[in-house]
């Protein structure tokens, strides 16, 4: 079987894969990094979102072989170096932007990608950016609010805390 080598959250990893092995399978099954989730089989839900070479991608529709040599960041690599929650993660907790937690890794990865390119997004820009990430628990209210807060914008006028 072919072998792939990539850097995941700054650490070099390698493993044998089949041609059909998806990046998310490689992460979850070969590396045991189960923070990235699979919520659908049509690339719609976004629970599997990771960053590949700095870009937001769905790891359920990416072959592991296609990212040979790439720099991959997953939810496990998002906390601060000292293990504390990053600004985005902390905002999700502060504003109750998660309930069951299953879509959350993808939401955090999507939010991080958005804020990298657009540090002060509007509410509409956030909602639009999250089109590829489905949450069934929160009705999105507190996710959007958390991302606004993570970008340093005042959310006190948004109803409910």
């Amino acid at each position: 079987m072919p072998k792939v080598t990539l850097r995941v959250n700054g650490r070099e990893v390698s493993g044998e894969v089949e041609g059909r092995t998806l990046l998310v399978q490689f992460l979850r099954e070969s590396l045991g990094m189960t923070g990235t989730h699979v919520g659908c089989d049509t690339s719609q839900c976004g629970a599997c979102t990771v960053h590949v070479n700095g870009l937001q991608v769905k790891s359920c529709t990416t072959f592991a072989m296609d990212v040979d040599g790439a720099e991959v960041t997953t939810i496990e690599g998002m906390a601060n170096a000292d293990g504390s929650l990053s600004v985005i993660q902390q905002a999700f907790q502060d504003h109750h932007g998660l309930q069951c937690g299953f879509c959350t890794p993808g939401m955090v990865m999507a939010a991080a990608a958005l804020l990298k390119d657009n540090p002060k997004p509007s509410e509409a820009e956030i909602r639009h950016h999250l089109e590829g990430n489905i949450c069934r628990c929160t009705g999105y209210h507190n996710i959007v609010k958390a991302i606004l807060a993570a970008s340093g914008q005042d959310v006190s006028a948004i109803a409910a805390e």
Partner: peptide, 11 residues
């Protein structure tokens, strides 16, 4: 939330 936000949930 801490475990869910860091990929440490156990589903």
């Amino acid at each position: 939330d801490v475990r869910f936000l860091t990929g440490n949930g156990r589903y």
